[in-house]
Write a protein that binds this DNA or RNA. Structure first.
Length: 597
RNA sequence: GGUUCCGUAGCUCAGUUGGAUAGAGCAACAGCCUUCUAAGCUGUGGGUCAUUGGUUCGAAUCCAAUCGGAAUCACCA
């Protein structure tokens, strides 16, 4: 039973016997006492003054006295206005550290197995390399998966690759027309970059044509683009692909494989992975069947031109297209199919889609459409919607060349980590391999933390001209704190301090120790909360505070040079648990922590 | 125009589900390495929590309106 639970139970008893007031146990909320006041847990008594018919101070004093006399873990209490602050006995806190420092998986739960969750993330197109927006998506998806696992869920990470459609045909067409057989091997380019270049080439040439069309016919931009001869060729290619034309499918497979090879290395460096990869080319037909079922059951309707629609006007939305008049499927059709497939594959109780907030409307419609179909899982879809990464000049635009490429960004982070670390002279005793690994750890740590510390639903700003910081509220700051602790642990192992025992009653906690202990004590709750809200940012902010608190403790008090052997030994446990929580928390963000840096 | 989201220090962001005097980092300035790693620690300055009302013991947090910004409203994905 947690300290809070025991306190709350006694408080409930106090309210009953002192004021004849019966309150819901759940409604008694204790909060950590703010640092500027003395105490560990605070009860706000204002809600009870009506029933007590006494002043807030008097009410608090009476409850405090009752609780202190009944509950042996309480050392003292104080009252400030309507705030009742309880202090726990030191031995309780020390006992907690003693127990938790012996628990290798402190803060996380074992997977229950009966509550499978599917997290879809990444879901790239195969015509463009991954950029900063994808980085946010991937880091969020991976981290949320880890956090849900830590909260006891069985998690399946899946990726749905958008490998078909008109956009792929554009890259293919450009490669066929102007590629002269170029391959990743012959060009030395990464496969996804190569294919992306042909997509850009197509757009460039097509725009030239469109400009001519517009000049001769005087039509608007959009019409001009649709009437460009290259667009007609691309559509023809798509028809051939859908008809299963051998040569087209061959090129398609080859070029997609180049892209997958390229993505694979990007994913690997980013440290993300998947249980299963779905391909739209393999799933896009499934949605049609379901739509036809809906048509038969009357959930959907057909218009005169043959197109199929759902009417959501009774739910305050619009009519939405589900099948084109030529019978081909649209985005929504595909998502209806993949939702069903995923449900069949995993019997998931929750299906989480990590997708940008520009698709909020789409997922709102998807859930309602599945509801119309009376699918049991329609209530269990969750769109984890995240904000865009913006540059100082606004949105990233590929046309203006302001897209921040994922590979280049990671390489940049590596270089900055190397320069900074070497300038500090921190790697003198390192082998070449160890250096490489350390620079990578620090560079990726800085990048990941920078992105994950921001609340997912908010837009965030990235300024390419200012390198991501390594000081202050950053990944390297936290990594550094971990490395410092590891240094203490190594030395303690050399002197044999870690083998000794200590006497609880010989220790009186100081303020910095208490603050640190309370933070450590709160870790499991933070994990649960982050899982409930699917917010890695909560983990990030927690672990930053923890690292800061350790640094303050470290600055004011020594572990190894402490003359009192009991205190020294206890502080070693405190440090050990801090290091472990830092490592676990950073792991939930997909960030490694070095033992030396 | 409809819908959804956002607005907190010069900049980037927190703010524990309605609690005490709104916090960090960066940037600026001033200190701290003979002591477990100075990627650290300490201090100074910086705020009408967009605005106005409402709800109540109590509001950055909840409600309404207004202002400002973003996304979306395709037989694109």
């Amino acid at each position: 039973m947690t300290f809070e639970t025991r306190l709350a139970k006694t408080i409930k008893l106090a309210l009953e016997s002192l004021f004849n007031l019966n309150v819901e146990f759940q409604s008694i909320t204790l909060q950590p006492t703010r640092k500027e006041f003395e105490g560990d847990f605070t009860l706000v008594v204002f809600p009870y003054v009506k029933a007590s018919r006494r002043s807030p101070e008097e009410t608090a004093r009476m409850v405090g006295e009752f609780v202190q006399s009944q509950l042996e873990i309480i050392a003292s209490f104080n009252v400030i206005k309507g705030f009742l602050n309880f202090s726990l006995k030191d031995e309780q806190w020390i006992g907690f550290i003693n127990e938790a420092s012996g628990n290798n998986s402190y803060g996380t739960l074992a997977p229950a197995g009966n509550d499978p969750v599917v997290v879809e993330y990444s879901s790239p197109n195969t015509n463009k390399p991954l950029h900063l927006g994808h980085v946010r998506n991937n880091l969020l998806g991976y981290s949320v998966s880890r956090i849900l696992e830590a909260a006891g869920n069985k998690v399946f990470k899946v990726n749905l690759v958008n490998d078909r459609g008109i956009h792929i045909c554009k890259s293919m067409l450009a490669w066929i027309k102007w590629g002269t057989g170029e391959t990743p091997e012959s060009s030395g380019k990464k496969g996804d970059k190569l294919v992306g270049d042909y997509y850009v080439l197509f757009e460039k040439e097509m725009r030239k044509e469109a400009a001519q069309v517009a000049a001769t016919t005087g039509c608007d931009d959009e019409t001009a683009r649709n009437n460009a001869p290259l667009m007609a060729e691309a559509r023809e290619l798509l028809r051939k692909w859908e008809a299963g034309g051998q040569d087209v499918v061959g090129i398609w497979k080859m070029m997609n494989q180049w892209v997958y090879d390229g993505f694979h290395s990007t994913y690997k460096r980013m440290g993300v992975d998947f249980h299963k990869i779905y391909y739209e080319s393999e799933t896009y037909l499934l949605g049609k069947e379901i739509v036809n079922e809906g048509l038969a059951s009357g959930a959907f309707f057909r218009k005169e031109d043959g197109s199929v629609w759902v009417d959501l006007s009774d739910e305050g939305l619009d009519q939405k297209l589900l099948l084109r008049s030529d019978g081909t499927s649209v985005y929504m059709t595909q998502d209806i199919g993949t939702a069903q497939l995923r449900y069949d594959d995993y019997k998931a109780t929750r299906m989480i889609y990590v997708v940008g907030n520009e698709q909020n409307y789409h997922f709102d419609v998807l859930r309602r459409v599945l509801g119309k179909l009376q699918k049991p899982y329609s209530e269990h879809l969750f769109h984890l919607s995240y904000g865009m990464v913006e540059l100082p000049e606004g949105k990233m635009k590929s046309r203006e060349g302001t897209v921040v490429d994922a590979d280049e960004l990671m390489e940049e982070m590596y270089k900055t980590a190397r320069e900074t670390t070497e300038a500090l002279g921190k790697v003198d005793g390192f082998t070449e391999d160890e250096k490489q690994e350390l620079f990578e750890t620090i560079g990726m740590g800085a990048l990941k933390y920078f992105i994950l510390k921001v609340d997912p639903k908010k837009n965030m700003l990235f300024n390419p001209n200012e390198s991501i910081d390594f000081n202050g509220n950053t990944g390297p700051f936290i990594q550094y704190t971990h490395a410092r602790i590891c240094s203490i642990l190594r030395k303690a192992a050399e002197t044999g301090l870690d083998k000794q025992q200590y006497k609880v009653e010989a220790i009186a906690l100081n303020n910095k120790e208490k603050i640190l202990i309370r933070s450590l004590y709160g870790f499991p709750q933070v994990v649960q909360q982050a899982a409930a809200e699917m917010s890695p940012a909560q983990i990030a902010n927690y672990v930053y505070d923890l690292a800061k608190e350790f640094n303050q403790f470290y600055h004011d008090h020594s572990v190894l040079n402490e003359p009192d052997p009991d205190v020294s030994r206890f502080r070693l446990d405190l440090s050990l648990l801090t290091a472990r929580v830092i490592k676990t928390a950073m792991g939930l963000l997909g960030i490694k922590v070095p033992e030396r840096m």
